[in-house]
């Protein structure tokens, strides 16, 4: 294994780790708020569950980029590519948008989700509005995902 390949793998791993970490923290924050709401009004379970799931997508995005790197480098079957150190760093850099923005946006999105869950507790019919507000934060995770995907494919 070349040093370049090692660096690229670390990049892919970091994308999966940070995205997953952000989502785990985010879903946990929103989950606590949901549990609180459900203790008062169990009927709202369906509505708050959707809001709780929203910060969960960044983990998936990080995972997707990691998989794309693996496919691109022939790590899933076939022989791994022999990357130079420079190429390795290029892959590492390509993974960074979703790794960093995934981590941060998941946590920030979770804060919005928590507020939206509280809003749903007071006004159940407003849950769709809360969903939209929460999804606004995710826009930047999606843009980061696109940046990472296009970079990985462009390499």
């Amino acid at each position: 294994m070349t040093e370049g390949l090692l660096i690229a793998i670390i990049g892919a791993a970091v994308a999966a780790i940070l995205g997953g970490l952000g989502s785990a923290i985010g879903v946990q924050m929103a989950g606590k708020a949901s549990a609180g709401v459900c203790s008062e009004n169990p009927d709202l379970f369906g509505k708050v569950l959707i809001l709780q799931a929203l910060p969960g997508t960044q983990g998936i995005y990080g995972f997707i980029v990691a998989i794309m790197v693996m496919i691109k480098l022939g790590l899933l079957g076939g022989s791994p590519a022999q990357l130079s150190t420079g190429e390795g760093w290029a892959y590492f850099g390509a993974c960074m948008p979703i790794a960093l923005i995934g981590l941060i946006s998941a946590i920030l999105q979770a804060r919005t989700a928590v507020s939206a869950i509280h809003m749903t507790a007071k006004q159940p019919e407003a849950s769709a509005k809360g969903m939209t507000m929460t999804a606004m934060v995710e826009t930047y995770a999606i843009l980061a995902l696109l940046a990472s995907i296009l970079l990985v494919l462009g390499l």
């Binding site: 997508t57 998936i60 995005y61 995972f63 997707i64 998989i67 794309m68 826009t139 999606i142 843009l143 995902l145 696109l146 995907i149």
Partner: peptide, 16 residues
């Protein structure tokens, strides 16, 4: 662009 991103994420997870 989210259309493409979400479509791709569904496709990649199915692929994996």
């Amino acid at each position: 662009s989210r259309i493409m991103a979400l479509s791709l994420s569904t496709a990649i997870i199915a692929y994996v």
